[in-house]
Amino acid sequence: MNSLLDSLRGIGARVIDSIWRMGVATRFFLMTLLQSGQSFRRFHLVIREIYSAGVLSLIIILVSGLFVGMVLGLQGYETLQTYGSEEALGVLVSLSLVRELGPVVAALLFASRAGSAITAEIGLMKATEQLAAMEMMAVDPVARVVAPRFWGAVISMPILAALFSAMGILGGYLVGVVLIGVDEGAFWSQMQAAVDFREDILNGVLKSVVFGVAVTAIALFEGYDAPPTAEGVSRATTRTVVTSSLAILGLDFILTAFMFRGV
């Protein structure tokens, strides 16, 4: 009886605790936005973060994009062949990439490459008292450390997603047209007929911006909120990857329902 009560109490405490954390995270996010002025006045701070979040994620994004596109080309060809409509391969590859796989997979990779790095970096800065030292020097760590990272990552995300999609389409082209021999003209023209700039491409870019904001906000908060110990930082890093992956997939469902329902 007592153990049941205890476990109920435990669940209740955890629920309250997570709502509490949610509130703290929201306040932290708003603070980051409010303290963003300096990031734009001293844009080289943001450039540095675009480098560490974006440029350093380039390789994994480009290679993964190429392979995902090649797999799509192979699998799509196998399926379409049974209906005798191999020419629609371009449509299949480009629509799946531009609408879904580009933004989603790029964001998942970004969460595990750049998101975890952000959490670890900020967590370590906290654990080694670098953030406290900054505050003692009358420099606000949210303005100086957090906000530039936020904007650097948010700017990088759509660029990475677009590169992922473009690479994927090239991969699909390589497999479908160059390797298997689908008609090149049909591949591109059917693609162009089916992919709409505003409906598909811009919505894909919009998705990746939303994912970028979500991943970065989670990564920054987890780092800033991490217990200042080696164990705390490593746990926070894991939590960043798990939470932001879930957030990406959940948000993707919501955004897709809004964007493509009518079509």
Partner: peptide, 26 residues
């Protein structure tokens, strides 16, 4: 000025940039 227990130097900056940090910020 405050000296932290283990220095709390900014690990992503050189010694020079660390000392220059408060000057450049303020």
């Amino acid at each position: 000025g405050m000296l932290f227990q283990f220095g709390a130097l900014f690990t992503d900056m050189s010694v020079f940039d660390n000392v220059a940090f408060p000057l450049r910020e303020h």
